[in-house]
């Protein structure tokens, strides 16, 4: 029996779909057991969503009322919905837009930017922007997430294979450090360093003063970045027992008395410590909590 899979793209860059295609030979193996019944980012055709979908992979965050409606429509037809990638799972980089007012953003784009200057904000035949950038689980029930920006092709293949075997996939509950081969941190860094500086080989990047989100970020990617001496930016979101990915790292640096970071502005704070998770972070919650009041 073939499994009916659908994919869909919301506010995002289609990078997750590229990662899906990047599973390579594994994809060909999968396709033996899979029928791709709906996937406009890949097949470039917008048909109505077919019924009886077994698994739906939804990429991108919920930015417009169209995204929201499509997500709901897909949920109706699909037995198992996967938030596919950082935007869908945690709000993604798009979520940083929540540090600004949505309408002001629209005004800015259509009136201030060079190409769009003096243009009218389109109101017909286009979806309306929502006041907040949301993750998928804010609008529909999500059964599983595949984290990452983009998700690792090996992990995508492995998760789909597990699903095809009729089992429930599991994400690693650990953090990046668990998979990182670098020598561990034992002392607070002497000073913070910028991303363009060149790290020493083989030693924990955080201990060298680079802002590595590894300790608070969910493992499963094999620490691909840090083993190549690129600090982890936290694209896989918080690991299982982390209260808030950004705030715990902020806390760790504060405890190490790195005074530079204690007075960060929200835009920088969010962009650095909650780059992929701001829309689902405690930082955003605090801000929203105020709005409601």
């Amino acid at each position: 029996m073939t499994v009916r899979i659908a994919t869909m793209g919301m506010a995002g860059c289609s990078g997750c779909h590229i990662a899906l295609l990047d599973t390579g030979v594994e994809l060909l193996n999968l396709l033996k057991d899979v029928e791709l019944v709906y996937s406009y980012p890949i097949v470039d055709a917008k048909n109505p969503i077919p019924p009886n979908i077994d698994v739906a992979l939804i990429e991108g965050s919920i930015r417009t009322n169209h995204d929201k409606e499509m997500a709901k429509a897909m949920r109706k037809q699909a037995k198992f919905v996967i938030a596919f990638g950082a935007c869908s799972a945690h709000g993604g980089v798009n979520g940083l837009a929540n540090t600004f007012d949505a309408q002001e953003g629209v005004e800015y784009v259509y009136h201030k930017t060079l190409l769009m200057a003096q243009k009218q904000v389109p109101s017909e035949h286009v979806p309306q922007i929502l006041p907040e950038n949301l993750r998928l689980s804010d609008v529909v029930k999500v059964d599983f997430i595949i984290p990452g920006c983009p998700p690792h092709p090996d992990e995508i293949a492995q998760i789909i294979t597990t699903l095809l075997a009729g089992e429930t996939p599991k994400l690693s509950s650990k953090s990046i450090c668990d998979e990182c081969p670098l020598e561990r941190l034992t002392e607070p860094p002497k000073q913070l360093r910028r991303i363009h500086e060149i790290p020493e080989q083989g030693i924990c990047l955080l201990s060298q003063g680079f802002l590595c989100m590894g300790p608070a970020t969910r493992a499963g990617c094999g620490a691909e970045c840090t083993r190549r001496l690129m600090p982890c930016t936290g694209c896989r979101g918080p690991s299982e027992t982390v209260w808030d990915q950004g705030i715990v790292m902020l806390d760790a640096l504060a405890a190490m008395e790195k005074d530079e970071i204690t007075n960060f502005k929200l835009s920088r704070l969010a962009g650095t410590f909650a780059r992929y998770t701001y829309a689902s972070s405690k930082l955003d919650n605090l801000r929203k909590g105020l709005k409601k009041k």
């Binding site: 504060a254 204690t262 502005k265 801000r287 909590g289």
Partner: peptide, 15 residues
């Protein structure tokens, strides 16, 4: 140091 971070986070969130 942590109290400063908390106070900053609160300020930045409009609290």
């Amino acid at each position: 140091s942590r109290a400063q971070v908390v106070r900053n986070v609160l300020t930045q969130s409009g609290k």
